[in-house]
Simulated assay, not measured.
Amino acid sequence: MDQEKNIQSDLASHVARLLREAFGKGPQSVYVSIRRPFIVFYLRGLLSPTEKVLFEQDQVFFIQQTRDLLMKSLIPEVRAYISLLAGMQIREFYYDWGLHNHSGVFVGIESYEDDPGLFNQEMYFGKEELHLEIASISQHVQKLPEEIYSCMLNERTLLVIRNGILISIEKELIRLGYDEKLKLAKRNLEKGHLHNNNHFHRILNTKVIDVFADWDFELDKSVFVFMLNPTQ
């Protein structure tokens, strides 16, 4: 247990330093949750002075586009640190920002032989109803996912994964090279539904303090991360 905490602490320190060098201001805190094959970094207090001005001027898309460019160089370094310190070979990497909360999340998924759907055999409070709610949101925005599974990494971190989510017109936009614009649009649309949903607190019987979303268009896959406050 002590070794695991040391690994999480070292990873948090390295990622905080990387972000400080890239953004000019590091996060106030980084929390690392590991439950193989998943690793989640939760970032708090991350908004540079320049971004603060842009955010106040409602230039959210500009901030997101700038961060997307920075992440292209940061992701390989984060993967390398995870491999070095935790021994995890990250196959998939996702990230998202909660600019209104000055927060963010990184999600790594390592190569695994077992069927991740096995996590559906694990139960936590509200799981079945949560999957139904996610399916309903997905159908309203685009279509029913072919598969939904989830994992409660710890009492504060819930990861939901959807497979088979893209509709034909989205696949064509990706083929034509509009994947970055599509991701920006989906962030705005789907996260709007997630943030404006007043059922999650009741379903999970706890306060949801942050919700994040990202997509891997090549894999036709997306992740949601719910950050919870179990004391409320």
Rank of each mutant, 00 (worst) to 15 (best):
M1D: 10
M1R: 05
E4L: 06
I7L: 04
I7F: 05
V15Y: 01
V15N: 02
E21S: 09
G24V: 10
G26F: 02
Q28A: 10
V30W: 02
R35T: 00
R36Y: 06
P37E: 00
P37D: 01
I39R: 00
I39V: 05
V40K: 01
F41R: 00
L43I: 11
G45L: 15
L46A: 05
P49S: 04
T50F: 14
T50K: 15
K52I: 03
L54K: 09
L54C: 03
E56C: 04
E56R: 05
R67Q: 11
L70Y: 06
M71L: 04
M71C: 04
R79G: 09
R79A: 09
Y81Q: 10
L84Q: 14
L84C: 08
L84Y: 08
G87I: 10
M88V: 14
Q89K: 15
I90C: 07
R91W: 07
E92H: 13
F93L: 00
Y94W: 10
D96E: 08
H100G: 05
S103H: 11
V107H: 01
I109L: 12
M123Q: 15
Y124I: 15
K127E: 09
E128L: 08
E129L: 11
H131T: 06
I137F: 05
H140L: 15
H140K: 13
Q142V: 04
E147Q: 12
E147A: 13
Y149Q: 06
Y149K: 08
Y149N: 07
Y149I: 06
T157R: 01
T157L: 01
V160N: 04
V160S: 08
I161L: 07
L166R: 04
L166N: 03
I167M: 06
E170V: 00
K171T: 06
I174G: 00
G177P: 00
E180C: 07
K181Q: 13
L182M: 11
L182G: 13
K183T: 07
R187I: 11
R187E: 04
R187M: 06
L189Y: 01
E190D: 10
G192K: 12
H199M: 08
H201M: 07
H201Q: 11
H201P: 03
I203L: 09
L204A: 09
V211T: 03
V211I: 14
A213D: 01
D214N: 08
D214K: 02
D214R: 03
D216L: 05
E218Q: 14
L219Q: 14
L219I: 12
D220G: 14
D220E: 13
F224W: 14
V225L: 09
V225Q: 01
N229P: 05
